[in-house]
């Protein structure tokens, strides 16, 4: 028998998340974000959170909802444009911000989940990002030491999932989700479609269920588009 990771809803999934914890939140911009869980965090009112997420949402959606309620103490991201409240909190010093190169952020999450404590990368050498970090030359080129990231809870969003926690993502909504799923002490997955064990093709699984502790079917996904761009037919 495969293990059963199913919980009823976001409320049950987010049980145990407390003020002061470090959370990883999947998504790139508003694409592939765990909407139901973010709404639940707002409802729970937990504060002083450290959020590791590529972006910080927009003013009134995504992690922007937590920023509005001043629930986040520190953001670890690669890009935080398009969010006025974020800018205000950062410039006033209310919010601590750690900006790191996107590839390093992804690899640090992957490393955290893969039991690799640190790695060398060329990204950021000779810039503010490299200040204070160990430098080593490989093949004549300088690299800086970056450490792994883990989180008390990782919260990810997938397209389909089964009761054992196996996940399949859709298109570019995959992004950071599989990496963060690996790096959470407890990983919560919300999915658009939850199916019984055996319904997903094992050849197609992106995140094996071993990385997921709780899974639930999300409801009423808004999937807001940040930059709607089209061409004429």
């Amino acid at each position: 028998m495969a293990l059963n990771k199913v919980v009823a809803n976001a409320e049950e999934a987010c049980r145990g998340i407390q003020s002061g914890m470090t959370l990883m939140v999947g998504g790139f911009g508003l694409c592939g974000i765990p909407e139901n869980s973010i709404a639940q965090l707002v409802k729970m009112g937990v504060i002083n959170l450290t959020c590791i997420s590529n972006n910080a949402g927009v003013d009134d959606f995504g992690l922007g909802l937590l920023l509005q309620k001043k629930q986040i103490r520190k953001m670890i991201s690669s890009y935080v444009g398009e969010n006025e409240e974020f800018e205000r909190q950062m410039l006033s010093g209310e919010l601590e911000v750690d900006l790191i190169p996107q590839g390093s952020l992804a690899e640090r999450c992957r490393a955290g989940g893969a039991g690799i404590p640190a790695f060398f990368t060329p990204a950021g050498y000779g810039t503010e990002v490299g200040e204070g970090k160990e430098v080593r030359i490989f093949d004549g080129k300088p690299h800086i030491l970056e450490s792994a990231l883990t989180a008390d809870f990782a919260i990810v969003k997938a397209w389909k999932g089964d009761t054992a926690g196996n996940l399949i993502y859709k298109a570019t909504a995959r992004n950071f989700n599989p990496l963060m799923a690996m790096a959470g002490k407890t990983t919560i997955a919300e999915v658009e479609e939850l199916v019984p064990n055996g319904q997903l093709d094992p050849n197609q699984i992106h995140t094996p269920g071993i990385f997921v502790q709780r899974i639930f079917q999300g409801k009423s996904y808004e999937k807001r588009i940040e930059q709607r761009t089209v061409r004429k037919a």
Binding site: F28, G29, L30, C31, G32, W159, K170, A171, T172, A173, K223, R224, I225, E226, Q227, R228, T229, V230, R231, K232, A233
Partner: peptide, 18 residues
Amino acid sequence: FPIEGNEDPDLINAGKQT
């Protein structure tokens, strides 16, 4: 870019454009 009406919120580029 998609033809109007065919935008997919799960399919964007790094500039967050559909």
